[in-house]
Design a protein around this nucleic acid. Structure first.
Lengths: 341, 341
DNA sequence: CTGGTTTATGCATACGTTTCCAGATCGGGC
DNA sequence: GCCCGATCTGGAAACGTATGCATAAACCAG
């Protein structure tokens, strides 16, 4: 038994297939009773319209492609949740594809999106650099990047306000009396690392604290790298009393390194993360961190895409503020009277 | 400038559009040099075939729909990662949709999948019950369920071997000398809860331990519910010395409740979870739990779907084993000599 | 009753592919 | 030189929908 088409139900209703098409789309040209009758019949027969045939003629698929490094990353998953929700609200479906941070794979999935004629594309935390953009921009669909890791002005993007957020985080440490504050960054030179580092520097400058290069260490954005980087900082002749970590994943590793060294957080060392992953609430101690409004960033990206699809102007770059979440991994410097800070 | 079609490049090559179609698909009918020439031209002109037009005639979209409760759930995200990977390996794209555990929304997205003519559907942790299946089965596409929460034989599914895994987890506690072992379950009566509870009972029976109803409490599968349920258990005149939690999320709440009661895990109470979420490695103490091979379950579901798509028989029910991961939230019963167990 | 509007419907075409069938070209055996 | 088969290519129809245009029916004013 073939899937039924508009013609089958046209035959059943004794009208032309154009009439059926109009009835189902709710055209005002038709007599209301005709519309009702046809819909009734379609319903009874269990007819479901073919979006693919529709797309062929309308040249719109009501579909967007989302490429992520890996959906298993909790940060990414929440962003995608926001995207999907916003898309679904407007009748769009989303294609999801993992790039696994491999440029060639990212190209491949974007190619596949092009063949599927998605109306737009959202890319999160792309690590694909300059070679990337020409390809993206010569396909005719609008593209929005979320927390893009390589600077570039040509496309639309929504990003966390890295500099302000990290400045605020470090200022929090300074307010607690800390003077030797480490920065645990990412060794790959991504934009978010660069910007967060800049915020760290700014906070030091504002407080008149000297920048000490030996207090900077680089991980890989994951617990393992954070662990190794933290060990270096702990091995310093004069170790930092507080460390601002590039992201929560690094902070997890850092936390472990501190504990393994027989020290306590926050009594011996204060730790701040970035992202506010779910896990941050459940570490020991719960992690002070900068919250990124992940789902909202997803929604925002989707809404930007909608504006673009409607031919409207859209902001080239949307910066959303982070929020410092105070938990128990930060404490006043031992022997420091907070009021005196 | 319109997107170019097969005809545009046919004109450029001085052949018919049928020939172009064959060249691009790699038909053996064509002279190899013709194929090469046409591909060359298509390449130069930046042609990308339209999957939607193709789908219309082939009646295959090379597309599958995945419906999840919410992609923000880390468990789900990993499963979806496995699905996407397996799909992508074979040239399939995946539509992702959140149901937010609302039946009507789940219906809606499945409807939308039907319109898009997906070749198959995968549903994870569906909480939609019986009313659901007729609809699913009368659309003609194959469906596979992952960890379905309502029993039913009509469709294909892959599930974790709940009973065996939970029996093993509880036996671990028994081996540690525990005798008063609590079960912290889910109050919604899902299949996974039922089965895990059965495993708990079996383990008690095997060890000749009495089942004590007061040692069973129900949460909601999330930290809040686990927290509340654990408080009840702690308030017992004679509290359990170990608790097996239905899932890691509940265990997180339980952990917090224990700590708030001024007790220590595992010295005062041993705790076991289920799922092995990422967070389980980073709690204090790290959580002993049953690992579900999430990505693999996703792959398996996808592969089952492929078999179905090829018209092959496929197992109605695939059970994958869990794996007990020993961490630091379980310890021998205080004053108990393990060797004597 | 007639002619001109308005209203409701049907016809035909287009969207961009795939694929069946027919036709053209070519080489070779007789 | 002719015919046959093999090899390659083109023509045309089909997939299921949307929509511009033509047309039929109904209405109303004169």
């Amino acid at each position: 038994m073939r899937k039924l088409s508009i013609k089958d139900i046209a035959a059943a209703a004794g009208v032309s297939h154009s009439t059926v098409s109009r009835a189902l789309r709710g055209s005002p040209l038709l007599k209301p009773e005709t519309v009702a009758r046809i819909r009734q019949i379609a319903q009874e027969k269990g007819y479901t319209a073919s979006a693919v045939a529709r797309s062929l003629v309308t040249r719109r698929t009501q579909t967007i492609g989302v490429v992520v490094t890996t959906i298993a990353d909790p940060f990414v998953a929440e962003v995608v949740g926001g995207i999907e929700e916003a898309a679904n609200d407007r009748g769009y479906s989303v294609f999801l594809a993992n790039s696994n941070a491999q440029p060639e794979r990212e190209m491949k999935v974007v190619q596949s999106f092009a063949e599927r004629r998605v109306d737009g594309i959202i890319v999160t935390s792309s690590r694909v650099g300059a070679l990337y953009t020409p390809m993206l921009s010569n396909m005719k669909v609008p593209i929005v990047l979320i927390n893009n890791q390589h600077p570039g002005e040509f496309v639309h993007s929504v990003m966390i306000a890295n500099l302000e957020a990290s400045r605020q985080a470090v200022q929090h440490l300074i307010a607690l009396g800390h003077r030797r504050i480490g920065y645990l960054g990412d060794r790959f030179g991504y934009q978010s690392d660069t910007e967060r580092f800049a915020g760290y520097r700014e906070a030091l400058d504002c407080a008149g604290l000297p920048f000490q290069p030996e207090l900077v260490a680089h991980g890989d954005g994951r617990p393992e790298g954070g662990w190794a980087a933290m060990q270096k900082l702990l091995a310093l002749p004069e170790r930092p009393t507080a460390v601002f970590c590039y992201n929560d994943m690094s902070a997890l590793g850092a936390l472990r390194a501190v504990r393994e060294a027989g020290l306590r957080v926050p009594q011996d060392i204060s730790l701040v993360g970035f992202d506010d992953l779910f896990v941050a609430q459940f570490t020991d101690p719960p992690l002070t961190t900068v919250r990124q409004p992940k789902a909202q960033m997803g929604r925002l990206a989707m809404e930007t895409l909608f504006e673009l699809l409607e031919g409207a102007q859209a902001a080239q770059l949307l910066r959303v503020p982070g929020e410092l979440i105070l938990r128990q991994s930060t404490a006043p410097l031992a022997g420091h009277d907070r009021a005196a800070a």
